[in-house]
């Protein structure tokens, strides 16, 4: 029994997953977090720092970190990279003007060494809006097909209505689970 095996077994007992939720400002990160957690979403202010919630999902304990997306605090994102199992990238699907910004920030993140093992879930949020791009269009716009370094998935969702948020969580938990908890 090597050290790796011991570490794996140790980790398996806790079955903890650390998710980092990032994206441009106004993408709806906090709304997604609060919606998943069943909290009121009508009084959300732009996030000045970060929010953290712990949830049980499919037998895993998920720690979800929601960090503000304003430009001036994006440089602090890296303080949260360590130990991240999954990256949830939230996109405002109706914000066509900043899709290029969004693509740039995402691809910069993916260069980050400390995120190299993380699964990437892209939430194409705000599908309830009539002007929203579909998940396929977001996938093209963000050039997700060029990502060769991470397991990824994209899913259209609406934090406002709650549509498909749990499907996304299912995928990311499943993907992380199959990577980390090999012995299952």
């Amino acid at each position: 029994m090597g050290l790796l095996t011991i570490l794996k077994k140790n980790r398996q007992k806790e079955k903890e997953i650390r998710l980092l939720m990032l994206g441009l400002d106004n993408a709806g990160k906090t709304t997604i977090l609060k919606r998943i957690n069943g909290e009121d979403i009508d009084t959300i202010s732009p996030t000045l720092g970060f929010n953290i919630k712990t949830l049980e999902h499919n037998g895993f304990k998920m720690n979800i970190w929601d960090v503000g997306g304003q430009k001036s605090i994006r440089s602090y994102w890296r303080n949260y990279f360590e130990q991240t199992d999954g990256l949830v990238w939230v996109v405002d699907s109706a914000d066509r003007l900043r899709l290029d910004d969004c693509k740039k920030e995402l691809h910069e993140l993916l260069q980050e060494e400390r995120l190299s093992g993380a699964s990437l879930l892209v939430f194409a949020n705000k599908q309830d809006l009539p002007g929203a791009l579909t998940d396929d269009q977001i996938r093209e716009a963000l050039e997700l097909d060029s990502i060769a370094t991470h397991h990824w998935a994209i899913l259209g969702c609406s934090a406002k209505t709650g549509a498909h948020l749990l499907n996304g969580m299912d995928w990311v938990v499943g993907d992380i689970g199959s990577r980390i908890y090999l012995l299952d």
């Binding site: 579909t134 396929d136 990502i147 060769a148 899913l155 259209g156 993907d175």
Partner: peptide, 11 residues
């Protein structure tokens, strides 16, 4: 259809 679970695309 666009957001059904089967739309998950794993690269």
């Amino acid at each position: 259809t666009a957001t059904s679970p089967s739309a998950l695309q794993v690269s």
